[in-house]
């Protein structure tokens, strides 16, 4: 599992960082992404849908600050 820490980055930077990791990884690669920007909660699943990747349900953390994480599985093609 590749880790992508986008904490502290504002939209669209979390999606850009995630897209780069997926682009560089092999087909089917899994990335766990964590972000603290409120827009990432909506934009990461929307990006995955637009690009044909699979995105898990969100996982929320409130300590030490609000963040959301997803596991994204890159499309196999």
């Amino acid at each position: 599992m590749i880790e992508c820490d986008a904490t502290g980055l504002r939209c669209p930077l979390p999606v850009i960082r995630l897209a780069r990791l997926i682009q560089e990884g092999p087909p089917g690669a899994q990335v766990r992404v964590i972000a603290s920007d409120p827009a990432a909660e909506y934009d990461i699943p929307a990006w995955a849908r637009m690009k044909g990747h699979t995105c898990s349900a969100p996982n929320y953390t409130t300590e030490p600050h609000w963040s959301v994480s997803f596991v994204v599985t890159a499309t196999g093609v």
Binding site: R10, C11, P12, V15, P38, A39, Y42, D43, W47
Partner: peptide, 22 residues
């Protein structure tokens, strides 16, 4: 998009629709 709003929050409309907010 969030960066264009005074609150820096993304549009609740786009969020509710599940479409890209940026």
């Amino acid at each position: 998009s969030a960066c264009t709003s005074l609150s820096l929050q993304p549009s609740h409309v786009l969020a509710a629709m599940g479409v890209l907010t940026h």
